[in-house]
Design a protein around this nucleic acid. Structure first.
Lengths: 332, 332
DNA sequence: TTGTAAGCGTTATCAA
DNA sequence: TTGATAACGCTTACAA
């Protein structure tokens, strides 16, 4: 049989309530008593039952990470970050793939919360953009944070990088290389990042005095295949762009593969840039200028915000990094 | 307040025990009674407390997926598969990144089991190869299955593809293309798959009457960067191979990037092959011959084995698929 | 086929 | 600073 708190109390020669106090790091326990208890815990190799704690305390010491994202790399690294911090805080993480388009989307999350007495939720994009979910969570009064922000920053704490600024910086870099016709591949419409990155691209053009031309816009889904298609469309234009900026590296890899297939010399004849949401950039290195995202750090930051910070308006804007490759434009 | 089983019993006009029976799909409940209860559940939007069930029933309806794998794609897809099946079986999945080299590796898993009263474990490689863990699990009598098998197939149920056969088939394909000098990049030494794939390569050579030459062997770590290094080593040989078979696609992508950098024409001057453990193959398509692994299916199969099958020796060998690209060898 | 009562292993309340 | 006792919301005997 596994030892219970009773056994510990017995061995330590104190009451179970005192053991409970030590376990929960409560104050008002004499140092000497604490030591006795800790020794007994050690000796019996005792570990409290999560179920009993959850039942009695009406909380579970668990937080859930919700996601609906086609990028394994992105999610995986965020999972690692969340996992690390949860362990440090004495919590456990539940990773929940969700389907924001499923009819029982909110239902399922309600079930999760109800059944597990979750202590909080981390919503990664695009889950954090679903208003029906946000409303429910607010109503229930359960703490939650977002990764990748969202419209209303005062709604909950959030951790994110500044996509607009990053995309703008990359656009300015491409312009500085001499490019004037810069194609842009928009990301998945479910994701706010797709919108933000487009805004950054536009701002970069504007600041450079280049008119925005929507013929240079192509729409993808953050996937490799959609990147290929978008690249084909752009390169088939009467006046094809001399640079293509894809909203993530999966799509950038698609662009690269099309460029290879067409015998286009990289980076001399075409500059390719992208956000490395997925580390896919590694595979296409060094043909690619990228914007590096601190993915694990996003997970860690979000967890910290959830577990430590009571403020609803707290934010953590993480530093992105531009990794630049030089190339010459085909036409000036 | 959330409704409890009492409330349901009250609304349905039965005892709590009967509600419990319906919830657990027990037999010996009159159809009419079952309906009454189900209606009450529906009406109250009742969901049983996982904690209470775990405490009273000494089980948690949770299974854990343990992994220590540097391939986000691999893990992510297995997670999806596990997640799907768990939901269908009315279970919840806990995804646990582990560190097999950590000093408290087994301790942490013991803690997980103890605290959560886990119903079972799915061990993905290389976690499933840690004998100290396996011994502990056997001792505790907790059900577990492995993904990617292991030495002793009678130890527990397992789901895997036949790495040896797959690697052999790919080797034979390369030989059929006319290659005689086929370089091979071994995977991470922690992973049994690395060993098995090497065996398959050797068998393929043997069957073709080609002598195994360990100068054509290079050692990687299943990562892109290690693939680059290994490729450099192979291509720097006095007599470089005309084909390179990497143990996974991360490394194959590394080979490809080196080939590009060296101005090697693909696939005319060099054939590249790999296992697409990670879908990275998509990014380097179509220069690559690959062995496709049914990753989600691995997760689903493992979960099924754990949740349905009592037999300790059950196995599920999944079908792999060879996706072949033709090319000519440089030298005959 | 259904119901009654006694736990499960913690935390919370309140008193000492 | 500590301890007794009653929850917490289920399942498992056992009875009817």
């Amino acid at each position: 049989m596994r030892p219970t708190i009773h056994d510990v109390a017995h061995v330590a020669g104190v009451s179970i309530k005192t053991v409970s106090r030590v376990l929960n790091k409560e104050k008002h326990v004499r140092e000497q008593t604490r030591l006795k208890v800790e020794r007994a815990v050690e000796q019996l190799d005792f570990r409290p039952s999560q179920a009993a704690r959850a039942l009695a305390g009406n909380r579970s010491f668990q937080v859930a990470l919700l996601y609906d994202n086609p990028s394994p790399y992105y999610i995986y690294h965020i999972q690692i970050g969340v996992s690390q911090r949860c362990h440090e805080h004495g919590f456990r993480a539940i990773f929940q793939p969700s389907d924001i388009h499923a009819s029982d989307f909110v239902e399922r999350i309600k079930a999760l919360i109800d059944e597990t007495r979750l202590d909080g939720l981390i919503l990664s994009s695009p889950v954090g953009d679903q208003n029906n979910l946000l409303t429910t969570l607010k109503q229930w009064g359960i703490p939650f944070v977002r990764i990748d922000a969202g419209e209303d920053l005062s709604l909950c704490p959030a951790a994110f990088i500044d996509d607009v600024a990053a995309a703008k910086a990359m656009t300015l870099h491409l312009v500085a290389l001499g490019h004037r016709e810069i194609g842009f591949i928009v990301g998945h419409p479910d994701h706010r990042s797709a919108y933000n990155r487009l805004q950054g691209y536009k701002q970069g053009l504007q600041q450079s005095g280049i008119a925005f031309d929507d013929r240079l816009l192509s729409h993808g889904l953050y996937t490799f295949e959609s990147g290929r298609q978008a690249a084909d469309d752009l390169l088939n234009l009467p006046n094809p762009p001399t640079a293509i900026f894809a909203s993530n590296d999966d799509m950038a890899a698609g662009v690269l593969s099309v460029a290879h297939a067409r015998g286009i010399k990289l980076p001399d004849q075409l500059s390719i840039a992208g956000f490395d949401d997925t580390d896919m950039a590694r595979a296409v290195w060094p043909a690619l200028s990228t914007i590096r995202q601190p993915l694990q750090e996003l997970g860690r930051a979000a967890t910290d915000l959830l577990l430590q910070a009571p403020s609803a308006t707290l934010q953590r804007v993480l530093k992105y990094e531009l990794i630049l490759r030089s190339s010459t434009a085909r036409r000036k």
